[in-house]
Design a protein around this nucleic acid. Structure first.
Lengths: 220, 220
DNA sequence: TAAATTTGTTAGTATTGTCTAACATTTTAT
DNA sequence: ATAAAATGTTAGACAATACTAACAAATTTA
């Protein structure tokens, strides 16, 4: 069984590997808000527990076991986020901190119950995939809205940045997962987009925002 | 803010005081499964934090602050038990261990949401009162079934022992909170009772069981 | 009331997970 | 190619919470 601290390291390792490929000690240290020497010693412990392949000065790589156990922590996190939103009426920008705590509950039954009550959801409230019972993630590949063209019609499937600030910004624009977005124009100078969706006439979204919105093109 | 360990000490102190009056180090040690020297040193820390009145070799007494904070932990525990049973379809004998973990979540909003979704319940699934937002418990006084007489008709309001074994025994007899029980006979020799309730013809309950069932007499 | 038992404290140690300071290696830039 | 910068490790310390062994006080019993 992994401790709470270990679960946090596992999750961070997995997420960083997904985001950036190779993970180094500095990044992991920054992500966790824990100083580098502490991270180094935890990685040695992880090596003994066969959770990472560790060699001094080399990038950190989760073993298969490490990936599985990390996936299971992320599963608990994302199921919790979904439960909080769907069953407890939380808004999507409120759930992260609570899920960070509940993900450490040791009770397979508890998470099985959540999964069942939610009808075995495939994604969390931000569109991130929920790993299966073996910790395996099935990745669907989405396009960034910023990579789409004038005239494209797309559906919003996920958001990359899940900070409360960004999510509140989206709330204020009535942007939520599942909305259909039409790209009316792309400004060449700053790559901002004029889009329409829902009941809005049209809105202008900066490139920074468009890069954080993952969409599916209409099936053709 | 109290740590997880401190919250456990607070809860145990409060519960022991409710059950037995005075609390001593030995009892607290046994209840927590923590050796006495560790308990002594935690009590010194509690004295500094003004959670207990501590004097060497004297019984342990929670301060008003200590009672309030203990009550708030117990509130979190009991709200959680109720939530697990009412909203997540757990059986009453399954919830204790999970609630022991969730009670330590630091998020007032999370527990407020539970309370709201449950409609501000006054008792948990075992009939124990849920402290209010200030940690105050309003005690209703019940009678033990074992103190009732032949001919009495009562309603089951709470159970004293909440061990899974006892609760499963009650399940097997279809005994649940709220059932109306009629006392058909009391065996003088061993104080066992012949009772009827629900659809059962009649059942015999040992004195040990009857002492653990708290009932309300029919309003007169 | 004195001995035995129970209860409680002190002292010293261990583990987990954190830190800072100092040093070592690797990478980048001139 | 070497100096500077970035990255990573070692060594030693610390806080929280637990433990055991030894001792002290209080209570019970004979």
């Amino acid at each position: 069984m992994n401790s709470l601290a270990e679960e946090n390291y596992l999750k961070a390792l997995f997420n960083l590997a997904t985001e950036n490929g190779d993970v180094n000690v500095t990044e992991l240290s920054k992500r966790l808000g824990i100083k580098m020497p502490t991270v180094t010693s935890m990685m040695k412990k992880f090596a003994e527990k066969k959770l990472v392949h560790y060699e001094s000065y080399k990038p950190l790589r989760l073993t298969e076991k490490g990936k599985r156990e990390a996936g299971l922590v992320i599963r608990k996190h994302r199921l919790t986020e979904m439960f909080l939103v769907e069953k407890m009426n939380f808004a999507w920008e409120e759930v992260h901190d609570i899920a960070e705590q509940i993900e450490h509950i040791q009770s397979p039954l508890f998470f099985e119950k959540m999964d069942e009550l939610l009808g075995h959801p495939k994604v969390d409230p931000h569109g991130s995939p929920i790993p299966d019972r073996n910790g395996k993630i099935v990745w669907k590949t989405y396009d960034k809205l910023s990579d789409c063209q004038e005239g494209d019609a797309v559906t919003l499937a996920a958001v990359i940045n899940t900070s409360p600030e960004f999510l509140k910004y989206l709330n204020s624009r009535k942007i939520s997962l599942g909305i259909r977005i039409k790209i009316r124009a792309v400004e060449p100078f700053d790559k901002s987009m004029v889009v329409s969706y829902g009941k809005s006439g049209s809105e202008t979204l900066s490139n920074l925002v468009c890069e954080r919105l993952l969409v599916e093109r209409e099936e053709s």
